[in-house]
């Protein structure tokens, strides 16, 4: 009987190609395809949460152990840059949501506009991050390379931060622990920035594909799923920002 079925096979496979070009042919319907990929994206984000979860746990434990070091370490972060970055990301989430909406409404021009805007905002975020990191570099606050805890042993040597917080000098053993803070700061923001870089790269890809009208023909799953990813990266920042910048401010 196997032979019997095999002969008919080629024709059947061809006959099943009566669906839109964007439908992968192992799916029965477009809806199923959309559901499946969407579900996969949510699962992936779950994975990502566990991934960042490990970092958050480490941060919370260390912060509990070396509380004064973490407080003074966080004083080194610029709340201005941090806040503006948060604003930038929230705006980009908004433009991304609008982009998904535009794709859903088959509006190619608005889709391009919003994807472009999201891209610009994403790059702006990375730019600001670069400025912040650069400042750490100049102050010798990059752990492991040429770290110096002078700003914590003698806060007055760092007039800008000092006039705002009037930090007390930390005992030497505690001051050394600020390196731990910056290690986690760089690990967390670095991991987040890596996700941003991947996101920005994908935005470029989406932009050029969108120009050919790929997402405005009713099949916008990719844009939608990317949107989920982008919002997720945004949400991670929404957790990072208070943890690193705000929580031990005053």
């Amino acid at each position: 009987m196997s032979d019997h079925t095999a002969t008919g096979n080629g024709a059947v496979a061809e006959a099943q190609h009566e669906h839109p070009s964007y439908q992968r042919h192992h799916f029965e319907t477009v809806d199923q395809q959309f559901d499946a990929t969407n579900f996969a994206m949510w699962l992936f984000l779950l994975t990502e949460i566990m991934f960042f979860g490990g970092l958050f746990v480490s941060y919370l434990i260390m912060r509990n152990w070396y509380y004064p070091a973490f407080v003074e370490g966080s004083h080194q972060l610029s709340i201005l840059w941090g806040t503006s970055n948060t604003a930038v990301l929230i705006c980009s989430s908004f433009t991304m949501a609008m982009g998904v909406w535009a794709a859903e409404m088959h509006r190619k021009k608005s889709l391009l506009l919003f994807i472009g805007l999201t891209f610009v905002l994403g790059v702006a975020f990375l730019g600001i991050k670069y400025i912040e990191w650069h400042e750490k570099w100049e102050k010798h606050h990059v752990p492991g390379i040429h770290y110096s805890d002078a700003s914590f042993l003698n806060p007055a040597s760092d007039p800008e931060v000092y006039k705002e917080y009037h930090d007390k000098p930390l005992a030497p053993d505690m001051a050394a622990k600020t390196e731990e803070y910056f290690f986690l700061y760089f690990a967390m923001t670095g991991m987040h920035a890596l996700h941003m870089v991947i996101g920005v790269g994908l935005l470029v890809y989406i932009f050029f594909r969108a120009r050919t009208g790929a997402y405005t023909n009713g099949h916008f799953t990719f844009v939608e799923n990317f949107g989920l990813y982008w919002h997720f990266v945004d949400i991670i920042w929404i957790f990072l920002y208070p943890l690193l910048y705000l929580i031990s401010r005053y």
Binding site: W65, Y66, P68, L170, A171, P172, D173, M174
Partner: peptide, 9 residues
């Protein structure tokens, strides 16, 4: 032990 090695805490 801790007080000797990490006094400030």
């Amino acid at each position: 032990r801790e007080a000797i090695l990490n006094p400030s805490q």
